[in-house]
Each structure stands twice: as C-alpha cells, then as structure tokens.
C-alpha cells in the first residue's frame, strides 16, 4: 500500500499529464467526419510508433556483452521503425489521394 502511495506522490506530474492528455485526445477526435476515420486511425497508428524511443533507450543502456539483449533490441528498433515510417508514409499516401481531386 505504501508503495502505491509513494508512487502516486512521486509521479504526480506524470499523472496530471496523463489525465490532461486523455481529454486532449477526446477533444481532438470528437467532431471528425467519418470520411477521415481511416486516415486518422492510420495517423494515430504512426504516432504510437513513438515507442521506438524506448527501444533505442534500451539499446543505449545495454551492456555491450549482452548479445541476446542486443539482438532483441535490434529487432525492437526495426519493428518500431516499421511502425513509424510505414504509418506516416501510408497516411500521407491516403491523404494525397484526397488532394489530387480536380
């Protein structure tokens, strides 16, 4: 129990950010026309690729002798990049089609 209380106190700012961001997310999406649901989902999909930062941090901190760890981290960075690059490029491609109309 004490652990939880301490965690709450130590991370209060983070908790505030989380709550505020939840509202920001809800507000942003609230009034979007159905037409844009697919590109929006795709764009949001690319944004959560930010998890790649975690993969990079893991690799930067890893002991160089940890071969298995390096291999897993390497794979994680590849997959994270796939998420980011693929996500943004495919969203751009979709939106490009909306633009090329006469």
């Amino acid at each position: 129990m004490n652990d939880i209380l301490e965690f709450f106190n130590q991370n209060l700012q983070m908790i505030y950010i989380v709550i505020l961001m939840i509202f920001v997310g809800v507000e942003i999406i609230g009034h979007v026309p159905a037409v844009l649901h697919t590109p929006l989902m795709s764009g949001a999909n690319a944004i959560h690729g930010v998890v790649i930062i975690g993969a990079i941090l893991v690799m930067l901190h890893m002991e160089p002798s940890n071969k298995l760890g390096m291999a897993i981290g390497f794979l994680a960075v590849i997959l994270g990049t796939l998420n980011v690059v693929g996500g943004f490029v495919v969203t751009d491609r979709m939106l490009d089609m909306f633009k090329t109309k006469k």
């Binding site: 961001m21 997310g25 809800v26 999406i29 949001a44 944004i47 959560h48 998890v51 975690g54």
Partner: peptide, 15 residues
C-alpha cells in the same frame, strides 16, 4: 512517449 502514447490511447478509444 507518454504524451504520444496517451494521445493515441484516448483518441483511439473515441475513434
């Protein structure tokens, strides 16, 4: 990571 993740989490739920 925190803001991006939460943003997608909440926006994705609404979507």
């Amino acid at each position: 990571m925190l803001t991006g993740g939460i943003l997608v989490g909440s926006a994705g739920t609404i979507l």
